[in-house]
Design a protein around this nucleic acid. Sequence first.
RNA 1: AAUGCAGGUUGUUCUAUCGCCUGAAUAGCAAUAUUUGGGAGGAAAGUCCGGGCAACAUAGGGUGAUCCGCCGCAUGAAAAUGCGGGCAUAUUUCCUGAAAGGAAAUUUUGACAGAGAGUGCCACAGAAACAAGGUAGCCCCCACAGUAUUGUGGGGGUGAUAGUGAAAAUGUGAGGUAAGAGCUCACAGGUGCAGGCAGUAAUGUCUGUAUCAGGUAAACCUCGGGUGUUGAAAGGCCAAAUAGGUCCUGGUUUUAGAGCGACCCGUUCUAUUCGCCGCAAGGUGAUAACCAGGAUGGGUAGGUCGCACAGAUAAAUGAUAGGAUAUAUCGCGGGGUAACACCCGCGAAGAAACAGAACCCGGCUUACAGACCUGCACCCCAA
Length: 128
Amino acid sequence: MDNTFHKNERLCSKKQIDTLFEKGQTVNAYPIKLIYLGGRSESKTDVKAMFVVPKKKFKHANDRNKLKRRMREAYRLQKGEFYVSIGSYKLNLAILYYGNKTEEYDAIFKATAKLLNNLTKQIVTGGS
RNA sequence: AAUGCAGGUUGUUCUAUCGCCUGAAUAGCAAUAUUUGGGAGGAAAGUCCGGGCAACAUAGGGUGAUCCGCCGCAUGAAAAUGCGGGCAUAUUUCCUGAAAGGAAAUUUUGACAGAGAGUGCCACAGAAACAAGGUAGCCCCCACAGUAUUGUGGGGGUGAUAGUGAAAAUGUGAGGUAAGAGCUCACAGGUGCAGGCAGUAAUGUCUGUAUCAGGUAAACCUCGGGUGUUGAAAGGCCAAAUAGGUCCUGGUUUUAGAGCGACCCGUUCUAUUCGCCGCAAGGUGAUAACCAGGAUGGGUAGGUCGCACAGAUAAAUGAUAGGAUAUAUCGCGGGGUAACACCCGCGAAGAAACAGAACCCGGCUUACAGACCUGCACCCCAA
């Protein structure tokens, strides 16, 4: 499994984003929150993710970019394992930073790992 | 040399691994893969001006909104910027008996048209902050008391005096007066107008004349000049599905009134048709409604162009590891000192300021660690 992260793994369509925020369920791990929505798919795993840092908490575009990059990097390095463990599944994710100050990369990496673990458990136990 | 302030320049770098956006080429039906290029800033920020670009509008004028506002030259498409000059202002020095004022110097500052159009505001203090002025003071008159140049009360004049204030009605002197007052005069000062002279001009200067009632226009406002309006969410193109519109073809029914079912509509009954052909039965066409099929146009989701050898549309330019430096900091050693400071060497740590393009240019404004340069201020030491 590659560590790539191409455009077709990102969530871009505005409609899908709206429905995700309307109906999705959440998993927490400070300073990150994960919103997901999906169902079983026959053919292959199809996971789309997006990263959100609220403008209300971080006023400078500079800071938001930094946090998004850190989250994206953490997700990119860990998603391979995650894909394998969930099997063929169609899933939309929104990864949302809700802390009040900028955390270092280490903290974000650990939080992402925890999130993905919890999500896998929920899908595997409750999904069938 | 240090510190502070102002202005300007600059705004680390190398390697490896894993990645991101994108142009071109090759392979592939395509997804994609490979190769090879490109990938944040001086402010990308604020969105305050000017332009390009686009759509709409466009006889002329006004209102509104907004920007600009001394003069000359240069650069520029324009905004604007630079240089020089003028005026005012500030500081310092000097002149003058004082006040007002004048002269010189300066890298002081000036949003530098108008406060003789109007409105607003001018805290505190002060009698009064603009046609003002009192139970202060000064002066006059009347009444009462009294020996009174006094006291009390009333009426009037006055703007000289006043421990205010950022600012007090132009200043000084003289006359004048009951006391006073530009009330009058002299000298000085401000402002408007007219003329002469100097200057390209702003302006300066002289003469005459009128006048003498503060400040604030980065308060409204007035005057002069500029801007047509809206911004890339502009605008062009393609366009699924669904539901409408229009047209064509085929089929069925074709008009009016009444009853029944709440209405649409359906159904029943009664009367009954616009042209042509035909004696008639009937046929055919037109019109309208419905059904089916087809075509077409508008238009939504979406896509694409606009759009750039950075170029997204939930927004790329990153992460990790290891070095190299500038500099602040820390430690050790040496010099130096009364002790510090300071200087030299070695080691540690090591980019960390403001900040992220969103149609593109030119300005303006604001933010900014450290380094370097220039100017100014202040202090110390030495000569």
